[in-house]
Each structure stands twice: as structure tokens, then as C-alpha cells.
Design a protein around this nucleic acid. Structure first.
Length: 230
DNA sequence: GCGACAG
DNA sequence: ATCTTGTCGC
């Protein structure tokens, strides 16, 4: 349903209806085979444009296979719990430009650790019917104890575990890891840990973040006349 | 009613 | 997310 990423109405009631349908379709079971590739996505902003990039990696080595990106006009404001309607479409478009679909997508944002169980990673996972994991730098909802280095503490919400607070290294604040779609709470942590290379963020998301910022830098140097700026 | 609140 | 240099600490 195209409506689910670019709603005709921006009324909170309508948006919540879409999210409740997403939530009704989420699976937190491990529904995927052996992982050969994994992709990460992230977005940057410049003027009235959103730059979305996707980096495809080889799962075993974390070697980069391919990168794709799209630049679109921003068509929705940032409103907590409605991030999907701002970054969802661009991510799906950049993802569709990959020559080969990833076995799993790591998204910068929440998964089921969302007030209505429909974070960005979950929304994209359901719409694209693919396994996804949400990687956030801050908690949107839920509570958890502070993990020690290398440790993960359960993120609880209404008595249920919806993800983890993971401290990936000594100098960084813990990150929030949660299932997006077609993956369990335990497995999303396992996969995320295998993608760590000493940095705060797992490689898929970290490289996607660097990628979109490179593009943004290039846009500022070259033809910035395309931008509406202020 | 007040505060919190992914990017 | 974005505006931005240096600086404290391991």
C-alpha cells in the first residue's frame, strides 16, 4: 500500500490508523534464512531536501558491495512517533535502486520499541515484507538499566521486553537495538553484535551515516543552486 | 494539566 | 537532524 508511506491525510487519527495496521502485521519471529548480505540506511538534511542512502554489505566480512541514494523534497515534518512519514518513502526508494536486495535491513530509528509498536524499521519491514532491525541512539519509550561495556540490558515497556540497551564501547552512550520485522528480540541483538567493529554503531548504520554526509558535502561544494535553502 | 519524545 | 572548534580523556 503506497498510502502507508505517503498518506493523503496528515491527521493524527489517520496516521495512527496506518500504524495500528502495521503493528497488526508485525512478526517478531525469525523469518529468514542464512544471512549473506545486510544493508544499512540513514538520512541527512539540506535545505528543503532529504538525502537518503543505503549501503549493502557482505554479512560475514562487512565489506561494502554497493551504495545507492536518493535526494527528495521533504514532505513531512519531524514529529516524534511519526518519523516513518518523513523518512520512510526515501528509504524505500533508495533501497529499490540496489542491484541486489539485502537479506536484512538495519534502519536508523525504532522498531517495535514504539508507543504503537510501529517504528520506522517496523513500518519499512512490513511494507517491504523483509527482515529489519531498528538502531536508535536514544530511547523513545520503555525503560532499562544502564549496561556496562559490552553488555546489553533489556528494554521494557508495559512489562514486555521490546529491545535492548547496548553499550558497544567504553566511550559511547549505549544504543537502542530492537526488532523491526521478521526477527526476534534475541536474534536482533545477536546480529547487531556481529556487525560491530569497535565503533558506537554497527557497520551498516555507521557506513550509511558517513555515506549520506559525504553526499551532502559534495552537494554544498557543487551545484547548491538546486536548493531552495532558506 | 505537565512533561517526555527515534531523526 | 542541524548550527560548529577546540578540547578533555583513554
Amino acid at each position: 500500500m503506497d498510502e502507508w508511506l505517503e498518506p493523503n491525510s496528515h491527521s493524527p487519527e489517520f496516521l495512527r490508523t496506518i500504524q495500528s495496521r502495521i503493528a497488526a502485521s508485525v512478526s517478531t519471529e525469525d523469518e529468514f534464512g542464512e544471512l549473506e548480505t545486510i544493508a544499512g540506511s540513514d538520512c541527512a538534511f539540506l535545505g528543503d531536501r532529504i538525502i537518503c542512502g543505503v549501503v549493502l554489505l557482505e554479512y560475514d566480512t562487512m565489506d561494502v558491495i554497493e551504495k545507492t541514494h536518493v535526494v527528495q523534497r521533504i514532505n513531512f515534518p519531524y514529529i516524534p512517533t511519526y518519523l516513518t512519514f518523513r523518512e520512510g518513502k526515501p528509504i524505500v526508494d533508495a533501497l529499490s535502486e540496489l542491484g541486489k536486495k539485502p537479506d536484512l535491513l538495519m534502519v536508523d530509528g525504532c522498531g517495535i520499541n514504539h508507543p504503537r509498536k510501529a517504528g520506522l524499521a517496523t513500518h519499512i519491514g512490513v511494507v517491504m515484507d523483509m527482515p529489519t532491525i531498528g538502531i536508535a541512539k536514544n530511547i523513545l519509550c520503555g525503560e532499562a538499566d544502564r549496561p556496562d561495556v559490552g553488555e546489553a540490558k533489556p528494554l521494557l515497556y508495559h512489562g514486555d521486553q521490546i529491545g535492548w540497551l547496548l553499550k558497544t564501547n567504553k566511550r559511547s552512550n549505549p544504543i537502542v537495538v530492537a526488532p523491526g520485522h521478521r526477527i526476534s528480540v534475541d536474534t536482533c541483538l545477536e546480529v547487531t553484535r556481529k556487525c560491530l567493529r569497535g565503533y558506537k554503531l554497527p557497520e551498516p548504520t555507521r557506513l550509511a551515516h558517513m555515506y549520506v554526509n559525504e553526499i551532502k558535502r559534495d552537494m554544498l561544494e557543487d551545484g547548491h543552486e538546486v536548493l531552495a535553502e532558506l
